[in-house]
Amino acid sequence: MQFKLIINGKTLKGEITLEAVDAAEAEKKFKQYANDNGIDGEWTYDDATKTFTVTE
């Protein structure tokens, strides 16, 4: 399945997509990506659109 991450950071904004088996795997990958890029914020997930959002 394809999942999307919307980044609303203080210095980094944008979207990325990835393939994952389920939402838990996608969340783990997205949070690792955010951590690697210094993004720390409030996370939400919309199951209907398979979209994660992180807002700093």
Rank of each mutant, 00 (worst) to 15 (best):
E42N: 08
T11R: 06
E42F: 15
T51V: 15
L12N: 07
E42K: 11
F30H: 01
G38Y: 10
A48E: 09
T55W: 11
A20M: 05
E42R: 15
K4N: 07
E25F: 10
L12H: 11
A26P: 00
I39Q: 02
V54K: 01
K50F: 11
F3E: 00
Y45D: 00
D40F: 12
E15A: 13
G38V: 07
K4F: 06
E27R: 09
Q2T: 12
W43C: 02
Y45P: 00
L18R: 06
V54M: 06
F52S: 01
T11E: 04
Q32C: 03
N37I: 11
F30T: 02
D47H: 11
T49S: 12
N35Q: 08
K31M: 08
G41E: 01
V21F: 15
E27A: 15
A26R: 00
N35W: 13
A24H: 10
K29F: 09
A23G: 08
Q2M: 13
G9N: 15
I16T: 15
A48M: 09
G38Q: 14
K28N: 08
E15Y: 11
Q2I: 05
T55D: 14
Y33Q: 03
D36W: 12
N8M: 15
T17D: 10
D36G: 09
V54Y: 02
G38I: 05
T44V: 15
N37R: 12
F3I: 02
N35H: 11
L12M: 11
L12F: 08
T53C: 04
M1S: 06
E27D: 13
I7D: 01
A48W: 08
D22A: 07
M1P: 07
D46Q: 13
F52N: 00
F3S: 00
L18N: 04
F3G: 00
A20H: 03
T44E: 15
W43I: 04
I6G: 02
E42W: 09
K31Q: 05
G14W: 07
L18T: 05
I16V: 15
L18S: 08
L18E: 07
T51D: 02
K50T: 07
K4I: 05
F30S: 03
A24I: 06
Q2N: 07
D47G: 07
K31W: 09
K29Q: 08
A48D: 08
E25C: 03
A23D: 05
Q32R: 12
T51K: 04
N8P: 03
I16D: 02
A24R: 09
D47Y: 13
K31T: 06
G41K: 01
G9C: 03
A24P: 05
G14L: 14
T17M: 08
A24N: 05
L18Q: 08
T44S: 10
T55K: 08
T55A: 09
A24Y: 09
T49P: 02
L18V: 15
A20P: 01
F3A: 01
G38C: 05
A26N: 00
K10N: 12
F52G: 00
V21Y: 13
I39W: 06
N8H: 09
V54F: 07
Y45F: 07
E15H: 14
K10I: 08
E25P: 01
M1Q: 12
I39N: 02
Q32E: 05
G41M: 02
T51W: 03
T51Y: 04
F3W: 14
V21I: 14
K29T: 10
A26L: 01
D22Q: 06
D40S: 10
K13G: 15
I16F: 09
N35D: 12
I7E: 01
N37T: 11
T11N: 12
M1D: 06
G38T: 06
Q2W: 13
D40P: 09
N37E: 06
Y33P: 00
K13M: 12
W43F: 09
K28V: 15
E15M: 12
E27L: 15
G41T: 01
K13T: 09
E15L: 12
D46P: 00
K50A: 10
T49D: 14
F3L: 01
D36L: 08
D40A: 15
T17Y: 08
V21E: 14
E42I: 09
I16G: 02
K13L: 09
E56P: 10
K13Y: 04
D47L: 08
T51A: 03
I16R: 12
N35F: 10
T55Q: 14
L12I: 11
I6A: 04
E19W: 09
K10R: 09
T17N: 10
K28T: 11
K13D: 05
K10C: 06
I7G: 02
D36A: 09
Y45V: 02
E56S: 13
E25N: 09
D46F: 09
E19Y: 13
L5Y: 01
E15K: 07
G41L: 02
A26S: 02
I16S: 06
A23W: 13
A26G: 03
A23H: 14
N37G: 05
I7F: 15
N35K: 10
K4T: 04
G14M: 10
D22E: 10
L18A: 11
A20Y: 04
A34S: 08
F30R: 00
T17Q: 07
T55C: 04
G38N: 09
K28D: 05
G38M: 10
T53M: 06
A24C: 11
Q32N: 14
D46S: 09
K29D: 05
T49F: 14
A48N: 15
I39A: 03
Q32Y: 07
T44Y: 15
I7R: 01
E25S: 10
K10D: 05
A24F: 10
K29L: 13
F30N: 00
K13P: 10
I7W: 14
L5S: 01
T44D: 09
F30D: 00
D46H: 09
Y45Q: 02
A34G: 08
L12C: 03
A34E: 01
E19P: 05
D46G: 02
E19R: 03
F3R: 00
G41Q: 01
T55F: 13
E25W: 05
T17V: 15
D40E: 04
D47S: 15
K4H: 06
T44G: 15
